[in-house]
Design a protein around this nucleic acid. Structure first.
Length: 258
DNA sequence: CCCTATGTTCCCAA
DNA sequence: CTTGGGAACATAGG
Protein backbone atom coordinates (compact mmCIF):
# COMPACT_ATOMS: atom_id res chain seq x y z
CA UNK A 1 0.00 0.00 0.00
CA UNK A 2 1.67 3.21 0.96
CA UNK A 3 5.05 3.68 -0.62
CA UNK A 4 7.38 6.59 0.05
CA UNK A 5 5.18 9.36 -1.44
CA UNK A 6 2.11 8.27 0.50
CA UNK A 7 4.09 7.92 3.73
CA UNK A 8 5.71 11.34 3.16
CA UNK A 9 2.28 12.87 2.56
CA UNK A 10 0.97 11.51 5.86
CA UNK A 11 4.14 12.53 7.63
CA UNK A 12 3.80 16.18 6.56
CA UNK A 13 0.16 16.24 7.59
CA UNK A 14 0.86 14.56 10.93
CA UNK A 15 3.49 17.19 11.69
CA UNK A 16 0.98 19.97 11.21
CA UNK A 17 -1.62 18.29 13.36
CA UNK A 18 0.18 16.65 16.28
CA UNK A 19 3.70 18.03 16.70
CA UNK A 20 4.00 20.11 19.87
CA UNK A 21 0.77 18.72 21.29
CA UNK A 22 0.34 16.61 24.39
CA UNK A 23 -1.08 13.08 24.13
CA UNK A 24 -4.20 12.59 26.23
CA UNK A 25 -4.31 8.85 25.71
CA UNK A 26 -2.73 6.10 23.61
CA UNK A 27 -4.74 2.91 23.10
CA UNK A 28 -3.94 -0.37 21.40
CA UNK A 29 -7.19 -1.78 20.08
CA UNK A 30 -5.64 -4.88 18.48
CA UNK A 31 -2.94 -6.66 20.50
CA UNK A 32 -1.40 -8.09 17.34
CA UNK A 33 -0.22 -4.59 16.35
CA UNK A 34 2.49 -4.42 19.02
CA UNK A 35 3.12 -3.23 22.54
CA UNK A 36 3.30 0.26 23.95
CA UNK A 37 4.25 1.92 27.25
CA UNK A 38 2.41 4.78 28.90
CA UNK A 39 2.29 7.74 26.55
CA UNK A 40 -0.20 9.82 28.51
CA UNK A 41 0.83 13.40 28.99
CA UNK A 42 3.86 13.21 26.70
CA UNK A 43 4.31 15.78 23.99
CA UNK A 44 4.98 14.74 20.38
CA UNK A 45 8.32 16.37 19.52
CA UNK A 46 8.58 15.32 15.87
CA UNK A 47 7.18 12.99 13.24
CA UNK A 48 9.78 11.82 10.76
CA UNK A 49 10.03 9.17 8.07
CA UNK A 50 12.64 6.96 6.56
CA UNK A 51 11.56 4.89 3.59
CA UNK A 52 8.05 3.72 4.43
CA UNK A 53 8.53 3.81 8.21
CA UNK A 54 7.17 6.54 10.53
CA UNK A 55 8.82 7.63 13.74
CA UNK A 56 6.85 9.64 16.29
CA UNK A 57 9.42 11.12 18.69
CA UNK A 58 7.96 11.70 22.13
CA UNK A 59 9.06 13.68 25.12
CA UNK A 60 11.35 11.61 27.33
CA UNK A 61 13.13 9.80 24.50
CA UNK A 62 10.47 7.26 23.64
CA UNK A 63 9.55 6.70 19.97
CA UNK A 64 6.72 4.98 18.13
CA UNK A 65 7.70 3.32 14.85
CA UNK A 66 4.83 2.45 12.51
CA UNK A 67 4.89 0.36 9.37
CA UNK A 68 1.58 0.52 7.52
CA UNK A 69 2.38 -2.36 5.13
CA UNK A 70 -0.45 -3.27 2.78
CA UNK A 71 -3.61 -1.80 4.22
CA UNK A 72 -2.68 0.34 7.22
CA UNK A 73 -4.15 3.87 7.14
CA UNK A 74 -3.97 6.92 9.39
CA UNK A 75 -7.07 9.06 9.92
CA UNK A 76 -7.50 12.31 11.80
CA UNK A 77 -10.90 12.91 13.39
CA UNK A 78 -12.06 15.81 15.49
CA UNK A 79 -14.95 13.80 16.86
CA UNK A 80 -17.26 10.95 15.99
CA UNK A 81 -17.06 7.22 16.52
CA UNK A 82 -14.10 4.89 16.38
CA UNK A 83 -13.86 3.92 12.70
CA UNK A 84 -14.25 0.26 11.61
CA UNK A 85 -11.06 -1.83 11.70
CA UNK A 86 -9.33 0.64 14.02
CA UNK A 87 -6.30 -0.99 15.67
CA UNK A 88 -4.78 1.97 17.49
CA UNK A 89 -5.56 5.49 18.57
CA UNK A 90 -3.79 8.51 19.98
CA UNK A 91 -6.07 11.15 21.38
CA UNK A 92 -5.21 14.84 21.70
CA UNK A 93 -7.13 17.81 23.06
CA UNK A 94 -8.15 18.84 19.52
CA UNK A 95 -8.85 15.41 17.94
CA UNK A 96 -7.79 11.80 17.55
CA UNK A 97 -5.43 9.91 15.31
CA UNK A 98 -6.60 6.42 14.29
CA UNK A 99 -4.80 3.59 12.58
CA UNK A 100 -7.18 1.34 10.63
CA UNK A 101 -6.05 -1.78 8.83
CA UNK A 102 -8.22 -4.34 7.04
CA UNK A 103 -5.60 -7.04 6.71
CA UNK A 104 -4.01 -6.38 10.11
CA UNK A 105 -0.50 -6.51 8.75
CA UNK A 106 0.67 -3.12 10.04
CA UNK A 107 3.12 -3.08 12.93
CA UNK A 108 4.00 -0.78 15.81
CA UNK A 109 7.27 -0.82 17.68
CA UNK A 110 7.79 1.29 20.76
CA UNK A 111 11.45 1.92 21.57
CA UNK A 112 14.10 4.38 22.70
CA UNK A 113 16.55 3.92 19.82
CA UNK A 114 16.56 4.38 16.06
CA UNK A 115 16.22 0.65 15.50
CA UNK A 116 12.79 0.86 13.93
CA UNK A 117 14.15 2.25 10.67
CA UNK A 118 15.17 0.40 7.50
CA UNK A 119 18.84 0.47 6.59
CA UNK A 120 18.49 1.62 2.98
CA UNK A 121 19.36 5.07 1.59
CA UNK A 122 16.71 7.77 1.41
CA UNK A 123 15.89 8.44 -2.26
CA UNK A 124 14.86 12.06 -1.63
CA UNK A 125 18.08 13.21 -0.07
CA UNK A 126 20.60 12.50 -2.73
CA UNK A 127 21.00 8.92 -3.89
CA UNK A 128 24.53 8.29 -5.09
CA UNK A 129 24.31 6.33 -8.34
CA UNK A 130 27.93 5.17 -8.02
CA UNK A 131 27.18 3.61 -4.66
CA UNK A 132 24.03 1.91 -5.97
CA UNK A 133 25.97 0.66 -8.98
CA UNK A 134 28.60 -0.89 -6.70
CA UNK A 135 25.96 -2.70 -4.64
CA UNK A 136 23.93 -3.77 -7.68
CA UNK A 137 27.02 -5.17 -9.36
CA UNK A 138 27.32 -7.81 -6.67
CA UNK A 139 23.72 -8.95 -6.81
CA UNK A 140 22.07 -11.18 -9.41
CA UNK A 141 18.41 -10.58 -8.70
CA UNK A 142 16.12 -8.79 -11.20
CA UNK A 143 16.52 -5.00 -11.12
CA UNK A 144 12.89 -4.54 -10.12
CA UNK A 145 13.38 -6.65 -6.99
CA UNK A 146 16.63 -4.82 -6.31
CA UNK A 147 14.85 -1.44 -6.37
CA UNK A 148 12.29 -2.73 -3.89
CA UNK A 149 14.94 -4.02 -1.45
CA UNK A 150 14.50 -1.71 1.56
CA UNK A 151 18.00 -2.49 2.78
CA UNK A 152 19.46 -0.81 -0.31
CA UNK A 153 17.01 1.99 -1.14
CA UNK A 154 14.22 2.63 1.33
CA UNK A 155 10.76 3.55 0.12
CA UNK A 156 10.17 2.11 -3.36
CA UNK A 157 7.30 -0.39 -3.62
CA UNK A 158 5.52 -2.24 -6.38
CA UNK A 159 3.81 0.65 -8.17
CA UNK A 160 6.73 3.06 -8.28
CA UNK A 161 9.20 0.29 -9.19
CA UNK A 162 7.28 -0.38 -12.42
CA UNK A 163 6.97 3.34 -13.14
CA UNK A 164 10.66 4.05 -12.50
CA UNK A 165 11.78 1.27 -14.83
CA UNK A 166 9.38 2.32 -17.57
CA UNK A 167 10.61 5.91 -17.52
CA UNK A 168 14.20 4.69 -17.37
CA UNK A 169 13.48 2.37 -20.32
CA UNK A 170 14.99 -0.61 -18.52
CA UNK A 171 13.37 -4.04 -18.43
CA UNK A 172 12.36 -5.13 -14.91
CA UNK A 173 13.72 -8.59 -15.72
CA UNK A 174 17.34 -7.46 -16.17
CA UNK A 175 19.76 -8.76 -13.54
CA UNK A 176 20.86 -5.88 -11.32
CA UNK A 177 24.48 -6.79 -12.00
CA UNK A 178 24.00 -6.25 -15.75
CA UNK A 179 23.23 -2.52 -15.52
CA UNK A 180 25.90 -0.01 -16.42
CA UNK A 181 26.90 3.01 -14.34
CA UNK A 182 25.21 5.17 -16.96
CA UNK A 183 21.97 3.21 -16.61
CA UNK A 184 22.04 3.61 -12.83
CA UNK A 185 22.58 7.32 -13.25
CA UNK A 186 19.41 7.43 -15.31
CA UNK A 187 17.44 5.30 -12.84
CA UNK A 188 18.53 7.45 -9.90
CA UNK A 189 17.52 10.65 -11.68
CA UNK A 190 14.15 9.21 -12.76
CA UNK A 191 13.48 7.85 -9.25
CA UNK A 192 14.00 11.29 -7.80
CA UNK A 193 11.73 12.91 -10.40
CA UNK A 194 8.93 10.39 -9.96
CA UNK A 195 8.97 10.36 -6.17
CA UNK A 196 9.16 14.16 -5.95
CA UNK A 197 6.24 14.52 -8.29
CA UNK A 198 4.22 11.84 -6.50
CA UNK A 199 4.78 13.65 -3.19
CA UNK A 200 3.56 16.89 -4.77
CA UNK A 201 0.49 14.93 -5.96
CA UNK A 202 -0.04 13.57 -2.42
CA UNK A 203 0.36 9.96 -3.59
CA UNK A 204 -1.37 7.50 -5.89
CA UNK A 205 -5.03 6.64 -5.25
CA UNK A 206 -5.42 3.49 -7.33
CA UNK A 207 -7.81 1.65 -5.11
CA UNK A 208 -8.40 3.29 -1.78
CA UNK A 209 -5.38 5.32 -0.71
CA UNK A 210 -6.44 8.47 1.13
CA UNK A 211 -4.44 10.96 3.15
CA UNK A 212 -4.83 11.87 6.82
CA UNK A 213 -7.92 13.92 6.07
CA UNK A 214 -9.57 11.45 3.70
CA UNK A 215 -8.48 13.12 0.44
CA UNK A 216 -7.32 11.13 -2.57
CA UNK A 217 -3.96 11.67 -4.20
CA UNK A 218 -3.44 12.64 -7.84
CA UNK A 219 -0.44 10.68 -9.05
CA UNK A 220 -2.63 7.97 -10.62
CA UNK A 221 -3.12 10.49 -13.45
CA UNK A 222 0.60 10.29 -14.18
CA UNK A 223 1.04 6.51 -14.09
CA UNK A 224 2.54 5.25 -17.35
CA UNK A 225 2.41 1.45 -17.03
CA UNK A 226 1.10 0.34 -13.66
CA UNK A 227 -2.33 -1.25 -14.04
CA UNK A 228 -2.32 -0.82 -17.84
CA UNK A 229 -1.88 -4.44 -18.97
CA UNK A 230 -2.95 -4.90 -22.59
CA UNK A 231 -3.36 -1.16 -23.20
CA UNK A 232 -1.21 0.78 -25.64
CA UNK A 233 2.16 1.96 -24.37
CA UNK A 234 2.00 5.75 -24.12
CA UNK A 235 5.36 6.01 -25.80
CA UNK A 236 5.32 3.46 -28.66
CA UNK A 237 1.79 2.04 -28.82
CA UNK A 238 2.77 -1.59 -28.18
CA UNK A 239 0.67 -3.57 -25.68
CA UNK A 240 1.78 -3.11 -22.07
CA UNK A 241 2.64 -6.48 -20.56
CA UNK A 242 1.85 -7.74 -17.09
CA UNK A 243 4.19 -10.34 -15.65
CA UNK A 244 4.53 -11.72 -12.15
CA UNK A 245 7.81 -11.28 -10.28
CA UNK A 246 8.13 -12.62 -6.76
CA UNK A 247 4.38 -12.87 -6.71
CA UNK A 248 3.81 -9.20 -7.56
CA UNK A 249 2.20 -7.77 -10.66
CA UNK A 250 4.88 -6.20 -12.85
CA UNK A 251 4.00 -3.89 -15.71
CA UNK A 252 6.31 -2.95 -18.57
CA UNK A 253 6.52 -2.19 -22.27
CA UNK A 254 8.36 -5.03 -24.02
CA UNK A 255 9.39 -2.68 -26.84
CA UNK A 256 10.55 0.44 -24.95
CA UNK A 257 12.20 -1.31 -22.02
CA UNK A 258 15.43 -3.14 -22.78
C1' DC B 1 -14.01 -21.37 -6.57
C1' DC B 2 -10.52 -18.48 -8.90
C1' DC B 3 -7.52 -14.45 -8.81
C1' DT B 4 -5.85 -9.95 -7.17
C1' DA B 5 -4.23 -6.42 -3.77
C1' DT B 6 0.56 0.17 -2.92
C1' DG B 7 4.42 -5.03 2.21
C1' DT B 8 7.59 -7.51 5.08
C1' DT B 9 9.42 -11.56 7.16
C1' DC B 10 10.52 -16.23 7.58
C1' DC B 11 11.79 -20.77 5.84
C1' DC B 12 13.99 -23.52 2.65
C1' DA B 13 16.67 -24.94 -1.28
C1' DA B 14 20.46 -24.14 -4.28
C1' DC C 1 27.88 -18.99 4.62
C1' DT C 2 25.01 -16.39 0.98
C1' DT C 3 21.28 -15.64 -2.21
C1' DG C 4 16.79 -15.60 -3.94
C1' DG C 5 12.09 -17.39 -4.27
C1' DG C 6 7.87 -18.43 -2.50
C1' DA C 7 4.66 -19.01 1.38
C1' DA C 8 2.61 -16.86 5.17
C1' DC C 9 0.28 -13.24 7.37
C1' DA C 10 -5.46 -11.76 6.88
C1' DT C 11 -9.32 -9.91 4.47
C1' DA C 12 -12.13 -7.96 0.82
C1' DG C 13 -13.54 -7.54 -3.78
C1' DG C 14 -14.02 -8.71 -8.74
Amino acid sequence: MPELPEVETLCRQLRQVVVGTRILRGLILDERLGKMEGLEGKRVLAVIRRGKVFQFQLEGGLSLFFQLRMTGRFHWQEGGDIPPRARFLLSFPHGSLFLTDVRRLATLRCSRGEDGFPRGCEPLDGLDHRRIFEIARQRRLPVKNFLMDQKVIAGIGNIYASEILFRSRISPLRRSSSLTLHEWKKIVRVTREILDRAVRCRGTSISDWKDLFGRKGEYQKHLRVYGRAGKACRRCGAAVRRGVMSGRGTFYCPVCQK
